Simulated assay, not measured.
Amino acid sequence: MTALLETEQVEYNYPDGNSGLRGINFSLLAGRKIAVVGANGAGKSTLFLHLNGLLKPRRGVVRFRGKPIDYSRRGLRELRSHVGLVFQDPDAQLFSASVEQDISFGPLNMGLPEAEVRRRVNAAMAATGITELRHRPVHALSYGQKKRVCIAGVAAMRPQVIILDEPLAWLDPAGAKSILDLLEQLNQEGTTIVMSLHQMDIVARWSDEVVLLDQGQRLFQGAPRELFARQDLLTQAGLELPWPMALYQALAERSILPPPNELKGAELPMDQESLLPLIEQAWLSHKESK
């Protein structure tokens, strides 16, 4: 199966000479939810800028639908109509006077008819829950509202892939849940979602696949459960287990919960929903033994 987006041995050096990416191989299949993880400076943002054509590799190749990226103005405009990027800092992405104007910019730049632009903008605002902010000045928005406007601006271009750099940064739990629900909806409608995250419990319950970067290199790409079974990689990258897995291990070490080899075929709990039945079962067994 041809990857929707892929990199082959991509290398990139920053202007100061420091290495940003060191031979990155990365592939992305359509329809997936991909979490990209790693410590600060691991290369996540640099990789994203390459996938959208904002950076060009010093060596190696980036492909979209099997073809190398065309870095001409026309080629990049075509690429960005299919691959949307949401920056970590919304203020770096918002520049129009009002919400509606900002969301309209991408579709207008694609040369779409005015009626189609209006239809897409209305649909994007409805999907992101910001219709009532249509005429609000962007500088008057809250941080979470700005995040939604950025996502709406990208969604209005109907890309096949939306890439988000730390979309949950600086959001409270309610704001983070709202963004995750929105991304889940977009994915169910067929959009491939790629985002960088630091919260391993969200990686565990949200992503279909996880990519681990460290010092500009890819250490792992695969299912979240496979990554969390590799304590060596987590330690090397300075990452922790999702809290349900860490709590299970602590309780198993104290013989409060059964050890992994006694779970009778059950997998180690990665989320709260799979941990709670184990605790409940242990509690019932304790009561019956009294």
Rank of each mutant, 00 (worst) to 15 (best):
Q101I: 10
V86G: 11
G60N: 06
D70P: 01
R63H: 08
P107Y: 00
N52L: 15
V36D: 03
S81R: 05
H82M: 10
D89S: 10
S104E: 15
I69W: 11
D89F: 08
A115S: 12
S98L: 10
V37N: 06
V62N: 08
I103T: 05
S81L: 06
G43K: 06
L47E: 00
D102H: 03
G111C: 11
G41E: 14
R59D: 01
V62T: 10
P107W: 01
G43L: 03
D89K: 09
A42F: 15
M110F: 11
S98V: 09
R118W: 07
I103E: 03
P68E: 13
P107A: 04
G38L: 00
I34H: 12
K33R: 14
K44R: 07
N52A: 13
F64W: 03
P57Y: 03
S45R: 14
P90G: 14
R118A: 10
G111Q: 07
K67Y: 15
H50V: 04
D89P: 14
E114C: 02
P113V: 05
Q93S: 10
A39G: 09
H50C: 15
D91N: 13
L54D: 03
F64H: 07
A115P: 13
G60A: 07
G111K: 07
V61D: 13
I69F: 13
Q88G: 15
F48Y: 09
G106Q: 05
L76V: 08
L47P: 00
R32I: 00
V37Y: 03
R73C: 09
R77F: 02
L85D: 00
L94N: 04
G60Q: 01
G106V: 15
G41K: 01
R119V: 06
L49R: 08
L94H: 00
V83H: 12
I103S: 13
K56E: 13
I103A: 10
I34R: 15
R59P: 01
G106H: 04
F48R: 02
R32L: 00
P57C: 08
P90L: 03
L55R: 06
F105T: 01
P113T: 14
R32P: 00
S45A: 08
G111H: 08
P68K: 10
R58H: 09
I69C: 10
V83W: 08
K56R: 09
G43A: 05
F105N: 00
R74T: 06
A92F: 15
R119G: 07
A92P: 15
E100L: 14
S81N: 01
E78M: 05
Q101V: 09
A115E: 13
N52H: 07
L54V: 11
N109L: 15
S72Y: 13
V36T: 07
L94S: 03
L94V: 09
H82N: 09
A35G: 05
R59Q: 08
V37P: 13
P90C: 12
N109T: 15
R119S: 07
G31N: 04
